[in-house]
C-alpha cells in the first residue's frame, strides 16, 4: 500500500488491533454479568478499540457530537452491545504472513504497552496535580500515539527503515518522517482524531505532543501527557519506535511547575499505577 497523503491513513474501518487484545475483550463480553465495568477494564488497554469507542460516542447519533473526552464516559453512553459491535468489527493486526514472511517487522505489543502505561501515568499525574477529570487524562494518554499505530500498521517496513535511519543519524523520528514522507506521525494522529470527531481538548494533546520543544506547554492536559510519555520511556516502557526523545523530562517538569519534591512523593503511587496496568496487560 502506497501512502502519499495524510488522509490515506484514515480508514473507515478504524485502526487495527492486536488479535490477543480483541480476543480478550470478546471473551469478556461472552461472560456472565458485572458487564459494563469489566468491559471497560478490557477496552482501556487497547488504544485502537478505545479510539473507535470514542469515535462512536462522539458521533451525532448519540447527541454528544465532539463532547466526549473520556473513555469511561463513552463506554457508559454506548453500552455493552454497541461496544461488542465495535470490537467485532475491529480489523486484526497480523504480524506474520502465511507464506513465511512478516507483515510487520515491528513488535506492536510494545507500542500497545507504552500507550497504556502512558495512560496510567497521565491519569496518576493528573490526580496528583489536583485535576478532577483523571479519566480524561487516562484517555488522552491512551490515544496520544494513534499516529504511530497507523504508521506501524499500514507502513511497518518503511517505519522500520525510518527508525533505523533516525538511530543512525541521531535525529528524531519526526525529522526523518518529515524528510521522507513529507509529514509526520503527529500529523497522521491529528488527522485521525479530527476525522473521528473527538473534542478539541483531545485533538490538542495529539497536536502538542512535542510542543514543549519550544519551551511552552499549550495546556495542562497536553503537558501532563508529554510528561507521562517521557516517564513511561524512562521507566522501561518505551514504544520501541522512537529512540531519540526530543524533550528532556526535567524541562517538562519545570514547564508544568512541578517541584522535585512533589515528583519524589508522587513516584511510589505512579509506580503502583503502572504495575497494575502491566499486570493486567500481561494477565
Amino acid at each position: 500500500m502506497k501512502f502519499s497523503k495524510v488522509d490515506e491513513f484514515v480508514t473507515a474501518e478504524g485502526l487495527p488491533s492486536l488479535p490477543g487484545q480483541i480476543l480478550n475483550i470478546l471473551d469478556e463480553l461472552g461472560r456472565t454479568s458485572a458487564m459494563d465495568y469489566t468491559v471497560l477494564q478490557k477496552i482501556q488497554y487497547d488504544p485502537a478499540i478505545a479510539l473507535s469507542v470514542l469515535k462512536a460516542a462522539n458521533s451525532p447519533l448519540y447527541g454528544y457530537a465532539s463532547r466526549i473526552s473520556s473513555l469511561q464516559q463513552a463506554a457508559g453512553l454506548l453500552g455493552p452491545g454497541a461496544i461488542r459491535n465495535i470490537v467485532l468489527t475491529t480489523p486484526i493486526l497480523e504480524r506474520y504472513q502465511d507464506n513465511g514472511g512478516l507483515h510487520s517487522p515491528l513488535d506492536h505489543s510494545r507500542l500497545w504497552l507504552h500507550m497504556t502505561v502512558t495512560a496510567a501515568l497521565a491519569s496518576g499525574l493528573g490526580r496528583c496535580m489536583g485535576h478532577t477529570e483523571t479519566d480524561v487524562y487516562f484517555t488522552a494518554g491512551l490515544i496520544h500515539g494513534v499516529g504511530k499505530i497507523a504508521l506501524s500498521a499500514y507502513r511497518p517496513h518503511a517505519l522500520l527503515e525510518w527508525m533505523q535511519l533516525a538511530e543512525c543519524e541521531q535525529l528524531s523520528l519526526l525529522e526523518i518522517e518529515k524528510r521522507t514522507l513529507g509529514f509526520t506521525h503527529v500529523d497522521i494522529g491529528v488527522k485521525i482524531v479530527e476525522t473521528c470527531g473527538l473534542p478539541e481538548q483531545l485533538i490538542s494533546v495529539l497536536k502538542n505532543c512535542y510542543a514543549s520543544e519550544n519551551n511552552e506547554i499549550p495546556d495542562q492536559l497536553s503537558g501532563v501527557v508529554c510528561l507521562a510519555k517521557n516517564l513511561a520511556n524512562s521507566w522501561g516502557f518505551a514504544d520501541g519506535i522512537e529512540s531519540v526523545v526530543p524533550v528532556g523530562m526535567n524541562k517538562l517538569i519545570s514547564l508544568l511547575k512541578i517541584s522535585e519534591k512533589d515528583m519524589e512523593e508522587w513516584t511510589p503511587q505512579l509506580r503502583e499505577n503502572v504495575d497494575l496496568v502491566v499486570q493486567a496487560q500481561e494477565g
Binding site: 488479535p19 480476543l23 471473551d27 461472552g30 461488542r84 497480523e94 504480524r95 506474520y96
Partner: peptide, 23 residues
C-alpha cells in the same frame, strides 16, 4: 511466534463467527 499468532487468530475468528451469528 507465528504459530502462537495463528492460534490466537483462529480462536478469534471462531469467536467472531459465533458472536456475529448470534447477532
Amino acid at each position: 511466534l507465528k504459530k502462537q499468532e495463528s492460534n490466537v487468530i483462529r480462536s478469534l475468528l471462531k469467536k467472531q463467527n459465533e458472536m456475529l451469528g448470534q447477532s
